[in-house]
Write a protein that binds this DNA or RNA. Structure first.
Lengths: 125, 125
DNA sequence: CGGTATCCCGGGCGATACTG
DNA sequence: CAGTATCGCCCGGGATACCG
């Protein structure tokens, strides 16, 4: 049967790669923070904007549109005056957040170790 | 005690935020693919390069340096002729990969659903 | 209030050439 | 083989102005 040692996997970086797909969507500056903000319940545009510190109007709109397109977020317009728009996680969005929490929890646990590693790396040039 | 309803969390995007820290390092185009390639064992520069399809020499070097700085990857030089350089996951790197697998596993499970959501979104304009 | 539209700069990143 | 060095393009994303 061919070789004795298993061939090592090859990794592609395109639209058909689920790895790349998810990282491409949530790997930007704001997506994860916005998803986490919405975990606490539906929220309005300007409220999200004030809670996700530093996000510009342009990037908030753009990121929410992306998350909506992937199916992680629902957008609901209430035609009041003035208009009210609420964003909330979909079922799939809540599903995504779980492994994200695992990741972030890991990151928090190892935050100090990472900082020390950086410092050591920088010191030895 | 202050308000009845809990205040919603505020999310920052800076170096002190573990959320941002981890996403900033692994959210780029190549880090996750390279980490996954190294799960299968130590590997040499050009071998990684051929397995992570599309990565340029420049970006592979740069990404590996970043992963090494965070403490996820070890770099070992064997002064043979020609020189051989091996990269391998550290203990922390192997630790990081676990929640990443959870995330990617989730992504693979929902890949079709996401694709359908995109299509629906694009069709309704 | 919740967006678009436009301008513009810095940097991410690919291509290419060179090196120990 | 495993990198650095340099150039240049593209575009992410901030700032600002305007709109339903």
């Amino acid at each position: 049967m061919s070789k004795q040692k298993a061939e090592k996997r090859v990794f592609h970086n395109n639209d058909e790669c689920p790895v790349r797909n998810v990282v491409a969507q949530i790997g930007d500056k704001w997506s994860v923070l916005i998803l986490f903000a919405l975990v606490e319940g539906p929220d309005r545009f300007n409220s999200i904007k004030s809670r996700v510190v530093g996000v510009s109007q342009r990037m908030l709109t753009q990121t929410l549109r992306g998350l909506e397109r992937e199916g992680y977020v629902n957008r609901t317009v209430y035609p009041e005056v003035p208009v009210r728009v609420e964003y909330e996680l979909t079922g799939m969005g809540r599903g995504l957040v779980k492994p994200l929490y695992q990741l972030v929890s890991w990151a928090e646990t190892h935050h100090d170790e990472i900082k020390r590693s950086r410092q050591a790396y920088d010191e030895r040039g």
